[in-house]
Design a protein around this nucleic acid. Sequence first.
DNA 1: CGGACCATTGATAATTGTCAAAATTCGTGG
DNA 2: CCACGAATTTTGACAATTATCAATGGTCCG
Lengths: 238, 238
Amino acid sequence: MSTSCDCGHCTNDICLHRVPIFSALNKEELSRIAELIHHRSYKKGELIVSEGDKTESIVIMREGSAKAFKYTTDGREQILYIFSEGDFFGEQNLLSHQTATFFVETLQDVKVCILSKMQFQQLIHRYPEIAIKIIDELGQRMARLENALQSMGVRNVDSRLGSLLIEFESKYGSVVPEGTLIRLPLSREGIANYLGIARETVSRKLGQLEQDGIIRSINNKSILVIDQESLRAIAGIS
Amino acid sequence: MSTSCDCGHCTNDICLHRVPIFSALNKEELSRIAELIHHRSYKKGELIVSEGDKTESIVIMREGSAKAFKYTTDGREQILYIFSEGDFFGEQNLLSHQTATFFVETLQDVKVCILSKMQFQQLIHRYPEIAIKIIDELGQRMARLENALQSMGVRNVDSRLGSLLIEFESKYGSVVPEGTLIRLPLSREGIANYLGIARETVSRKLGQLEQDGIIRSINNKSILVIDQESLRAIAGIS
DNA sequence: CGGACCATTGATAATTGTCAAAATTCGTGG
DNA sequence: CCACGAATTTTGACAATTATCAATGGTCCG
């Protein structure tokens, strides 16, 4: 269901520019890497990777967003990451030929850059700075996972939802006169699966936040944060 | 409260041999790195790192174990990792001079090897293979975190506890005639903080497992797994 | 032996999940 | 642009689970 990217005007350079791990390189080096890259696009709802796939390449998000998830033993989706522009995945086990440990499904139409693992390894040998960048990026991602785990450990569901909204605010929010408008990357069910709670609980908690005048839900697709201070208090400052 | 390691017989080589990330190097390279390393030891219950510390070095566990944790907004400890022999930490943000994102407290008497970040960076430039190993190791650690998040997402507390026991079984268990004996690295409270549930619930659930003849609690410090199959079923095969 | 610490047990309250039904929103096609 | 059916979300009632508080019982170590 996916088609190759054949748009003439989006040069590979543009792709690379946006990716933090290549930011240490100069233009010439970038264009040399650009030659190694393949493009591909996916429609909303498609699977980019399935758990168990042999992962022979690194995938860099160029446009759109996707969710990474596993199935819990009781059959629910547990969302692990939301990948947006500039994020990458598939770097797990660069050496060992292990298989993918989660699914990645697009949340919108998505365009990606693909780099084979072998080429990637050669790249690291030539430019060790890239490796340091990646280690750094992975460190940040781990910090995010650690935070997620930390908030999963918080028994108070309100705090968890508050934290999520604040996270989304900084990632998907835009300032408007009335407050901050978040374009939600996930549905209510998605939010539930991210937080490990029931869909209905999300509805109820959001409803309560709206009643308290802290947020305003708009069309199920956006949320307007009106009282940021109260939200932070609920999330536990964070 | 910590003292320098001054034992003459434990050469630095021994330290490095056990650490997977250096396994790609030959003896000569290892001994060159060994010169850069400092040793240190800690008593049980000491803090190796506090959240907010400037982390100027990589710490490699040589002996003993330690827990990494954060405080949740409602004041409880959330344990993120248990570091044992060969594990390392402090690699977060090799570039940026960000501060530590969690506490690390020893669970037993501990001996560590310390390598400054600057030296570590130089090391990577000289031996890019180390970088790939580290990326690989971080990938594995992320996989573990992802699994943890996955099992935290399971609403069923029994499954979560079951998964933890199975994890401990493979990490801290030894086979005996009656089954597998786990020497617990954590107290009941520690287990509770790892799973994000109440201390009392851990007691109750373990009590139930014992009543069902699946495990036998020994002295609060060890658990004998008698019926591994049932345990796996409870954990959700896993 | 005794005190400090850790673990268990019981009773109750609070929270959240589940199921079912109603309401809203979305997207497609006329 | 509107209308209709499908999908998603909200709401309500109830059941199940777990947290909390308090008291008791064990275990470890000097």
